Amino acid sequence: MRERVLRGLAVWGAVVVAVGGVAPVASAAEGPEADLAYHGSAAMASGRVDVGFTPRNHGPSAVPDATVRLRWSHPLAFRQTLPDGCARSGLRVVLCRVGALAADGLGERIEVGVWLRGAPSEVLLEIDTVWSGGAVDRNRDNDRRRVLVLDTGDEYHF
């Protein structure tokens, strides 16, 4: 048990270093205004969830850098192979660097595949911005997504 706790602390430390320190999204009184959104799909088969989405900034200001959080309602398997720019943060969370987004611009598509512990018949996936490089997003509705993904192999779009 102690090894798990130490391993978890080491992973969290790596996440903070990899993401550059995750800070909450700026309050409405600070920084330039931007409007982040995520659109994509998720599919699950036999305990594996594949998520792909494209970040977008509706503006009016550019975002120097951003980080998105993917959170599952079911714990992730202990070992994961994540793409560059993504790091695990706890039992159910993966953080991914979005990068800079021009005003009214699209970012690079993000593709993440994870294994869940066991083989659940469904999982709730939540996606949201946890850091926006100091930009203020007054429309938080389109950068917060909740998707119920069933173990059918079908794609669920958001």
Rank of each mutant, 00 (worst) to 15 (best):
T152N: 05
C96G: 03
M1G: 15
G113C: 04
R138T: 08
G134N: 11
L70Y: 06
E122T: 14
L101F: 08
V49H: 08
V11H: 11
A62W: 12
A62R: 12
R140V: 03
R145L: 05
L6Y: 14
V94G: 04
L124D: 04
L36T: 01
V22Y: 01
S61D: 12
V98N: 00
F53T: 06
G20T: 03
C96E: 01
E111C: 10
R92Y: 07
S121H: 11
A28W: 05
G47W: 07
Y156F: 13
T67Y: 04
S121Y: 13
P75R: 05
L70D: 09
A26Y: 00
P24A: 02
A135K: 06
D104T: 11
R4N: 14
P64I: 06
R69S: 10
D65E: 08
M1K: 14
D104M: 12
A45V: 07
A14S: 11
R140L: 04
R109V: 09
E111G: 12
T81Q: 05
V63N: 06
R48E: 04
V98K: 00
G113I: 05
G21Y: 00
E155V: 00
D137K: 06
R56T: 09
A103D: 15
R109K: 11
V25G: 00
V93C: 08
A103I: 03
A37M: 01
V25E: 00
R69K: 12
V16I: 10
A29K: 10
H58L: 05
Y38T: 03
L148Y: 13
V130E: 03
G118E: 14
I127C: 03
T152G: 06
E108W: 10
D65C: 05
C96Y: 02
M1C: 14
V63W: 08
G90D: 01
S73W: 07
G13Q: 12
D154M: 14
F78K: 05
R79E: 15
R138Y: 02
R2W: 15
T67F: 04
L150E: 14
R71T: 14
D104A: 12
V112R: 07
Y156I: 10
E111Q: 09
E126K: 11
G21I: 00
Y156N: 10
V22M: 03
A23W: 00
A87C: 00
L36D: 03
L95V: 01
R79F: 14
L101S: 13
F78Y: 05
A18K: 03
L70M: 13
I127N: 05
E108V: 09
V93D: 13
T81G: 06
A100E: 11
R2Y: 15
A14T: 01
S61Q: 09
L150A: 14
T152A: 02
A23E: 00
A102D: 13
A102T: 13
R92M: 11
G52K: 07
L76V: 15
A37V: 03
L125K: 06
I127S: 08
V49I: 09
S121A: 13
A119S: 11
G85Q: 05
G13P: 10
G20W: 03
D151Q: 12
G118T: 15
E3G: 15
V130F: 07
D35I: 02
A77H: 12
F53V: 07
A42Q: 10
G113A: 07
P24R: 00
L70H: 07
L76C: 13
L82K: 13
V136T: 09
V49A: 09
